[in-house]
Design a protein around this nucleic acid. Structure first.
Lengths: 227, 227, 227, 227
DNA sequence: AATGAATGAGGGTTCATTCAT
DNA sequence: TATGAATGAACCCTCATTCAT
């Protein structure tokens, strides 16, 4: 009945552990199954919302994709709207968690930022997570709660982090433009643009995001001597 | 009854002229009324689509806002979907027309770009036109025709124009970063970000777009001595 | 603007005559033009009603086919429903007129009936007039006025005429079955069936109506010695 | 996809029985309720389509008559059109089934045919089943699938059966007219006419179908000595 | 807890009818 | 008189939500 929960994450979130003993241990108690189901719904809903937007997404499709009955969704979420809002929270929280776990800043500021950029390119641009950004841009105005949450949890923290890095860069003499610290948006703008570009225009004009970001960093830090 | 036709184009197309003599000239011939109606529908639809997105917009509301009957919409547009697609065209075409009418490039490249930026700030960021950009980002994936059109008419031309300017700047020695010509996106990225920021986060953290764009240009052209 | 009125009949009904002198005589006075228009509408409406049935026929299509504006229809008919009812009358009356103008009955009863059958085959079965019969069968229950009219003008007269013929045949010894006079329907039944068959099943199994009617007459009058 | 529980079949399949003991036995399992609903929809739709024709029938009315919500109809049928087509099938199939179950042909051909005629008079002429015939005549041209189905399942089989009987009659010397075998339509024509007559003209001129069919058989088999 | 059949409000679309020109 | 743009009631169909099992 239950179909491939697809989502490793989900299972993990549910606290499932690989059966240690033999014989497919009866790991599945009630609560766990419920958590799995919930995770499957979240996963499925995310896919559908990203693919079609909030209004055009049908609960029927979410249920089908999650391998549960339509009614089951209502055991986990009050209604479509609050499902959407919770969803964004659920998906974003682990992202934030990772941001918080900043690796110790060894090396130059530019190296640090390049590492960030590399991560971003691999894990956001052109991936489902990137589409989530677009989804928030798309639905934000109709879901102030979502926009607020996203601002609070991701944008404001991200901006603060970037600003700190920029200030460090300025202090170390890596960055000349002192005013840049007032607008960390400038630092991340090309990355955001890359995300949008990929989902709208990649077909017409593929964009080498990695190269673009490097050029952008050159603009800020000065061109590198060594590649 | 008819509300602010806003849409200069439509009124013009209808050949309307301000009544010169007294006596409220009988300006209303058939074609003109039709053009006014159409303009009212376009205007109303734009507002609604921007406010709610494609799927959540009701034709009933568009009709009400435009002051026409629901059936009237179907005299001008085949259905909701093609109305949306035509709408984007209708609103964007005059923008493109203006882009084509480039003013003679006197003065420095930076001056030219600053002029652009000024225009953009006044006429796009924080205006309905800006929301249109967000709308296209939001609905693009579900309306390839819209994304295609927008890419062809606006993005590709804009990129080409920016690239030409950048190359000019490089040739004149105003811009140091030669690679920038490969990615005009970098030049416009902060402006786009400003557009999005205004409609999503302005409430939480107002953004001084003008100042940010100036900082960004300083990054590219070097800081100005005189403001 | 006005397109080919198609309908010779219509023009005739309107009293139009071929211009005798040269120069396209100014035959068109108001009344005549109106009559032409009306005839064109009747013709067009008939085609559409037959092709689609009452409910599925659009006045728009009738107007287009008749080469008039939609509003014009309302100058001639109160509404769609009464148009339909009048239509049937208009089309049927000339048929009835012809029935009344019975040719002098020379020859045998069988010859007379065969002449009828021949006419019927040529002018009804498989023609638009035949479809009219099917239309009446189809819409009769929802248009009692139509059914009534058709019964009064066509069916009852036809039955009376047939009965008279049958009685004549019995009196002359051509027909043995005396009871047949009570059910003239039996005489015409195969002809009606042929009409229906042609429009429903001809594609699957073509029917040689002429031959079938001959066999039927043989049944009633006895087989002919000479063909 | 959809199963054909026909109506009678449906109720039976549901195993409903009059409660034997007191206390309204809990006869209602899920599947049964569904079958009942479906049957109610079929029944209601039939009534409405017969009364108003396809185009003029409103799903709202069908739902109301069937005692279900509008949406429920769509759980059983794809849309109005395919509902109509399936409906005809559902109602006709049991009729065909009965035709196939021919009783052993004892007695004369005439007796056999009179038995048929008697059945037809009781169960078709003037009943809802008769109206169905008229409905098919009415909508056939717009629903080729319906006409095709009806031809294949009812008409062609009926014609074949009648032809066989006629040939038997000829072989046994009951029927003189050898050519009749080529046109079994002649045999059934008066019965069909009776069906149509009843729904269109009965009000004006009641028709004694039984007597008419007897006269018709007399025409084919010769008049009976004994009544 | 989970199901999915049932509901019915709501929205896109059509089209008979009207009326200003 | 003729037009056809405009109207808005009505209809088919969808889909979020409920609830008996």
């Amino acid at each position: 009945m239950t179909k491939k929960p697809t989502m490793a994450t989900a299972a993990r979130a549910a606290g499932q552990k690989p059966a240690l003993g033999g014989k497919a241990a009866p790991v599945s108690n009630r609560a766990m199954r419920a958590a799995q189901r919930r995770a499957a719904i979240v996963e499925a809903a995310m896919e559908e919302f990203i693919a079609r937007g909030f209004a055009a997404t049908r609960l029927d499709d979410i249920a089908k994709r999650a391998g549960v009955a339509k009614g089951t969704i209502y055991l986990h979420f009050k209604d479509k709207e609050s499902m959407f809002e919770e969803l964004v929270r659920i998906v974003i929280v682990p992202v934030v968690a990772r941001l918080d776990a900043l690796p110790p800043s060894t090396g130059s500021v530019r190296d640090l930022i390049e590492m960030f950029a590399g991560n971003f390119i691999n894990e956001v641009i052109g991936t489902r997570r990137g589409d989530l950004v677009r989804l928030i841009v798309a639905e934000g105005p109709r879901f102030p709660a979502v926009a607020d949450f996203y601002y609070r949890e991701v944008v404001s923290r991200g901006m603060a982090g970037m600003r700190a890095l920029i200030e460090l860069g300025i202090a170390r003499g890596e960055i000349q433009q002192k005013n840049l610290a007032r607008y960390p948006q400038i630092l991340v703008a090309p990355a955001i643009i890359a995300v949008i570009w990929q989902s709208l225009f990649a077909r017409h004009a593929p964009l080498d995001a990695k190269d673009m970001l490097r050029v952008h960093l050159d603009l800020i830090f000065g061109e590198r001597r060594t590649t």
